[in-house]
Every structure is written in C-alpha cells, then in structure tokens.
Write a protein that binds this DNA or RNA. Structure first.
Lengths: 337, 337
DNA sequence: GCCGGTTCTGCAACCGCTTGCAGATCTAAT
DNA sequence: ATTAGATCTGCAAGCGGTTGCAGAACCGGC
C-alpha cells in the first residue's frame, strides 16, 4: 500500500516523531532535518493518513450539512444547491470537507446522534429552526459545535445566520398596502418552523400598522405543493377576490398563478413568491420573488462554524443576510387607491 | 467525554476484545456475556468511535461525490440535487455517508489525490467522463474503487451508469425528421465530454440514416449560458431558417426560445431541451425536454459502488438508465412534409 | 576544562478499536 | 481419571499518527 510515516522516517533516518513535527511545522526542527524529511516524503509520495490523525487529534476536519428530507419537503431545491455551494466554498478554503445527509425515514435526531457519537465530524450545520427543536437541545447538551441557518428561539449563544424574514415580509406587505392593495392573502409554511412564523408576523404587523383587518380565512399555514396551492387559491377565490397573494415559496406562487390564469385573474391579483427560482423569470406573468441569497447563507454559516471550531475569537454569534425583493410583472398590478 | 470500549469492558467485567466481538456479533461469544455487555453499553450510552474503527478496519463507510465546479459549469443544478438524492438514499440505507465536494479553483485531480491519499473515503462517484481523464487513470492505477455517472471510453471493467445518450438523441432526431423537419440545429456541450459526443453522434447518425445533409454551421459544441445560446440562435437565424433545434440543456433551450420569440418564430421552430427542469413546463411555449432521471443515476451509481465495496459479486459493471422524451408545446410545430 | 543554557531529536505512551493466537474452561468419550 | 475436542475469553500487537518529557549534542563564557 502507500507510504506511512514510518517509511518516511526510515528513509530520512529519523524517528516518526520528527516526521510528525516536520508535518506540523514545529519550530524545534532544524532546517536540515526538515529538508531531508520533506525529500523523503516527496520520494515516497507520502500523504498523511487523516483517519489516524483524526484519532489522535480528535478532529476530523469534516462538517456535516443536514438537509430536510426531500421527500417530505420537496420545495426549495435551488435553495439547497446554493447553500451547499456556499458552505463548500468556505469549508474547502479552510481545509474542511462536507458531509451531506438528510433524515429519510429515520427521525433526524437519530442521524444526529449517530453522526455526533461516531465522532465523524467536528461540527454541524442545520438548515431549519423548529419550535422545541430536540436536535438543538441535544447538541447544546453535548456541547457539540453547530450553526443553524435560521433564527433560533434562544439566540444568545447559538451560532446562526438568517435573512431578516420578519423585516422583508413586513416591507413587502407595506409596499403592497401603499400600492392600494387591501385583501392580501398569505400562504406560509408549517407553524412550527420559525421561518414561517417570522414571515407571517411581518405580514400581520404590516397589516396591523396600517389598520387593515386581518382575515384568517386567507391565511394558510402548511407546506404544500404547487397543486395544493392552486387548490387553495380556488378556495380563496370562492371566498373573496384578493388583491394580492404572498407565498413563501415560488412553487406555491406558481400554483397560485395557475389558478388565477385559469380564472382569468392573472392580471388582477399581485402575486409574490420566495427564493427567486429560475422559473420566476420565465413564467408569464413573470413572478416577483425574494432572493434570499442562499449561497451567502451557506457561506457564512460555514464561516461561523469553522471559526468556532478553530477556536478563534468570534465578534458575533449571528449574521443577517440581505434578502432582496425582486419585482417582476406578477406584482405590478394597477390598483386604484 | 463519552464512553469508550474500555469503560464498557470495565462495567461488564470483560475485556475490550469481548466488547468488540459483541459489537461485531461474533459467534464465539456466549449469549450471557453478550447480554451483559449490551447492558453495559446501554447504561453508558456507548457509541463506537468510527474514527478508531476506520483506522483499524481500513474502511470509513464514506463515499465521495465529486461534482463539477459550479462556477465553470453553472448548468444542470437540478441534475445534481437529484443525483445527490439518489446517492444518499442508497448510501444511507447501507450505512454509508456522503462526502460532497467539487474542484473550485484547484484542479480536480488534486482534490482526488487528497481524498484518496488521506484515506477519508472508501470510494468515489464521478459525475462526468472526459476524454483522457487523468482522474480515472489515477484511480485505476491506485485501484481505488469508483463509479462514474457517464459512459467511459474504456468501459470493460470500470463501473458506470449512464443514460443511453446516443439512443435517445437518435430517437428524437429521427422523430423530428419523420415529422418533416430537415434543418435541425444542435447545441451541445464541450467536445471532450463523452456525454456531448454521444449525443451528437446520435444526432449525426439519425441525419445520415435519413439522408439529410449535415451542416456544420448549425452545430455548436461548447458549454455556455442562456444568453450565449440566445446569441447563437441569432447567428443561426441570420444564416438560415432552421426547422428545429436540439439543445443539450434546458437553460440553453430557453435561450433559443427567447431569441425565437423576439423574432416571432416561437411557433415555427421546434425546440427540444434536456434535463426536464422545472422551468420547462412553465415557459410558453412549454419546453419539450428529456427526463434523464438523475435520481436513478445517482441511486444506481451508489449501488454499483457500494456493492463493490462490500465485495459482493456484481453481475454487471454498468447500468443504463431510461431517459424519457417529454413532449410539450415547443416541439409540436406543424410542418408540411 | 567545566558548566549552564539552547537547540534538536527520540522514547514511549496514547488516541479507541480489531483480531490472530493461545489459553482457560467445560463436555463427553475412553 | 485422563484426554481430545469444542467453546469461550483475554493478551497483546497493530492500525498510523501525536506529543510530553528526557536526554544528547552543541554553544559560548568563565
């Protein structure tokens, strides 16, 4: 098989300790020995065995990214590709590898316990914040380093990155109101996700601040598919004629648009999606959406985590990533105020 | 920290060898000792340290998935999410974790060498086949297990999964011809990718078999973006009026459609994309595309690799995954034959 | 020539688990 | 009672690195 430290040591005529120290750039090694050792390494094409190293070091230089189970959470694929990209970019630059997984049948906690207990990884990136999250509690208890993409309920010491979900929806809602819209429907995700409640709160507060009555009949709170969104839109239309619909994912927004088109209301109702997926610019009317900059979320999540792993001082435990409202045709609906 | 084998051994009043054997379900352990040991494990919440295990075993139960650098290869994002999903599904079911990475600046071979040399992983999944691929040569030389998504030039012993790229394009081209199309343009990828040459060959052979002259002026062979595809389409239109365009990615096809729409030819030219991305069904005219079943490609890639890693017999070294042509509006163009 | 202080290197233990081999214990046959 | 064989368990070496500590070699100063 391939060369080990012992081989290098033998060839260079030193002990393995010395080889190890050369590798670590230990100052107490004379330049000549270092050169001799490095020569030997070259000759043998030596590469240190990371596993052995990890065992000794208690560090694997690997971080895990836990995605939601795609089966139960089919939305937001583009979000994850981009987040992965951001994480990888930062991680690789600092010598870390990325272990990617998702629950799939097993409950998420089981996976986490396995990952943590087996000592395979140094830290974890979680991609959602749930109410009473057992995983966060577990990681907290075992003091296992982690960072979460999302806004934790207890956000004092946890590392996290997130968009200002409350703020962006507040702003969008306000804007819609100022443009003369009154009946604004809201299709959000499940209530136990913080991202959902934050966004809905932004929506609710904007209505309240502008003295618009809140109508629970046009507020939906589940994760669903394009077709269920279409279905719900039909219900909404049966109930009343909305001025605008905010959907927290482009896929849902597409479902909304579909029903609106079918009922010839495509240009009467403002529709706004989230995540600025590729489709948004190609549908007609093109879909206004919110770019959440998933790549940056991933990048900074990795940054917080790895900085922590390296024991470097951290000036902050969280970062807010700018989300940008991208206006397209779907929300440019004339409305006489 | 957390319990080790030694702790379990002490509590159960046995040696670590025994604990280890219990863990491995070694037959030479009496039921009573086994029970006593398992009790101790329970009490201590023992979880074996995978790193130590790997060191001893020379197996990490981790496989790497190498994606192309997204920066230089921005297309096909959905392909990768789906492939990842398939790989993960199979891998997790068999106790393997997924290490995900891509070159990013570094050349790919460097990463591979690091990954292989550092002994972090048991096997590798590559996601493209290039001509004279240094990586495959390297892996071959070091006899490191790998599987490739794509069709290797030397396909006798290499493990691989792929669509029948030649066949599907041949079929599509033939079909276009039978519908009366004659001038069929082809926008493919870079020539050193096997997927490109396979597809183009299918296209060329279909033309040849139907005695349609081949016009190099409407054959393009680079990876490019939506906007460059639009640009190229302009060139093509300047040169002649094509009957149909086959683009080996939906993003390119969208660029084609854009130019066609701008020049009011959207309904005169049949356009066919690849990868059946979400956009395909939402654009107007909706885009005919080829569903390559990336999830299955990933799933079976993992399967071939892991079966190999487990040393189980393998009846075949490759699998062909069905690709399905999905006809939508963009290719339903009336043409008087 | 002796001594204290540097500078450099090696010994050996350790990280936590696996496994070949030998030895202990027990059973049953002679 | 003796012994061969079967059954179970432990010893100790090994996987490939790291690191505290001790000691060797060398330095200049007195």
């Amino acid at each position: 098989m391939s060369a080990t430290m012992k081989d290098v040591a033998r060839l260079a005529g030193v002990s393995t300790s010395t080889v190890s120290r050369v590798l670590a750039n230990h100052p107490a090694i004379s330049e000549e020995t270092a050169v001799r050792v490095r020569d030997a390494m070259q000759k043998l094409k030596y590469q240190p065995n990371q596993i052995a190293r990890s065992l000794s070091n208690r560090a694997t230089h690997t971080i895990a990214l836990i995605m939601p189970d795609p089966a139960s959470y089919p939305l937001m694929n583009p979000f994850f590709v981009n987040a992965i990209r951001g994480v990888t970019t930062f991680a690789r630059k600092h010598g870390y590898y990325l272990l990617l997984t998702y629950p799939e049948n097993h409950d998420e906690l089981t996976i986490i316990k396995d990952l943590v207990g087996s000592r395979r990884i140094d830290g974890i990136i979680l991609t959602s914040v749930k109410k009473d999250d057992a995983i966060m509690t577990y990681l907290e208890e075992y003091e296992h380093p982690y960072v979460v993409i999302g806004h934790p309920y207890e956000d004092q010491k946890t590392l996290w990155v997130d968009n200002d979900n409350y703020g962006i929806v507040y702003k969008i809602t306000k804007r819609l109101i100022e443009q003369g819209h009154r009946k604004i429907a809201f299709l959000g995700g499940a209530d136990d996700y913080r991202v959902t409640t934050d966004r809905r709160q932004g929506y609710l507060d904007a209505l309240r601040d502008h003295n618009i009555p809140i109508d629970e009949k046009i507020i939906y709170r589940e994760w669903f598919s394009e077709s269920i969104a279409a279905e719900i839109t039909r219900k909404i239309l049966d109930y009343c004629m909305p001025d605008a619909v905010i959907a927290t994912d482009d896929t849902l927004a597409l479902g909304v648009e579909r029903t609106l088109s079918e009922q010839h209301h495509a240009h009467d109702v403002a529709v706004i999606g989230f995540n600025n997926t590729q489709v948004a610019q190609y549908v007609r009317p093109s879909l206004s959406s919110v770019e959440i900059n998933a790549e940056l979320l991933g990048f900074y999540a990795a940054k917080l985590l790895i900085t922590r792993l390296q024991g470097k001082p951290q000036h902050t435990n969280h970062l807010l990533i700018e989300a940008e409202f991208i206006e397209r045709e779907s929300s440019r609906v004339s409305r006489k105020a």
